[in-house]
């Protein structure tokens, strides 16, 4: 409603100006309290692990050479039958190439969700995605879903496996925003994920997997 727009904005401007507050007069903020959130690089992963395990996240340690096999081994051990993956990503291509015969079915997310909803919602046991790294301050994974690695991969399957490179660890979200210059270009959807889906809405009792994944497995790749 253009009338509403103009009336709201002109009213705000009039009252702001009447009080003599120039927009330039609002002082810049001092971000020192966030800049001070720093950890020894060697401590970051321990902290991330401690914070995320406190909210039921699981960790799987592996290496750059072995992670596809480690993921497969984990699924087999857990008795899961299918894994949603992103075939057009580098990680997805490698996963498919090294998956081998038998074992859990690899399900590619290669169509628009409209053609894929039933399988997505009812027919996959787990999804695997990459991450941009993790944040020590709060124990959070960073994800930038893309055309090749869609948004729902980390949300709809009951288990989410997230590949975390052990050298992509940061101190704080603020540090990432600044150093990685996120403001210069954000994707359609950027995410911080700090555990499996949870709720405490029933008498403050924690329950996992209310809407999203019941289990989050961080696959630490060294």
């Amino acid at each position: 409603m253009p009338d509403a727009r103009n009336s709201i904005l002109s009213r705000l401007r009039a009252s702001r100006d009447a009080n003599g507050i120039a927009p330039q007069a609002a002082p810049p903020s001092d971000f020192t309290p966030l800049a001070e959130k720093k950890w020894d690089p060697a401590e970051r992963l321990d902290r991330i692990r401690r914070l995320m395990e406190a909210v039921h996240t699981e960790f799987l340690e592996t290496t750059e050479a072995e992670w596809p096999a480690a993921v497969r081994g984990f699924l087999e051990k857990e008795g899961l039958n299918s894994l949603l993956y992103a075939p057009a990503t580098e990680a997805g291509a490698r996963l498919a190439a090294e998956w081998g015969e038998g074992g859990p079915e690899l399900v590619p997310y290669d169509r628009p969700v409209e053609e894929f909803k039933e399988r997505l919602f009812d027919g996959v046991d787990a999804g695997v995605t990459t991450t941009l790294g993790a944040i020590a301050d709060t124990g959070s994974l960073m994800l930038w879903p893309s055309a090749d690695e869609p948004r729902l991969m980390s949300l709809v399957p009951p288990m989410h496996l997230a590949l975390l490179k052990a050298d992509a660890l940061y101190d704080s979200f603020w540090q990432v925003l600044r150093e990685k210059r996120w403001a210069d270009g954000l994707p359609t959807n950027a995410l911080l994920i700090s555990g499996p889906s949870k709720t405490a809405d029933i008498e403050q009792t924690l329950a996992y997997g209310v809407h999203g994944p019941k289990r989050l497995v961080v696959v630490v790749v060294r």
């Binding site: 914070l51 909210v55 997310y109 290669d110 169509r111 628009p112 969700v113 894929f116 301050d137 709060t138 124990g139 959070s140 893309s146 055309a147 869609p150 954000l186 994707p187 359609t188 959807n189 950027a190 995410l191 911080l192 994920i193 700090s194 555990g195 499996p196 889906s197 949870k198 999203g212």
Partner: peptide, 18 residues
């Protein structure tokens, strides 16, 4: 310390996104 999800939305589905 943080909620499970922090969701930043900057656009509707772009061409090619699924």
């Amino acid at each position: 310390p943080i909620t499970t999800y922090f969701n930043m939305i900057s656009s509707p589905r772009k061409p090619g996104e699924k």
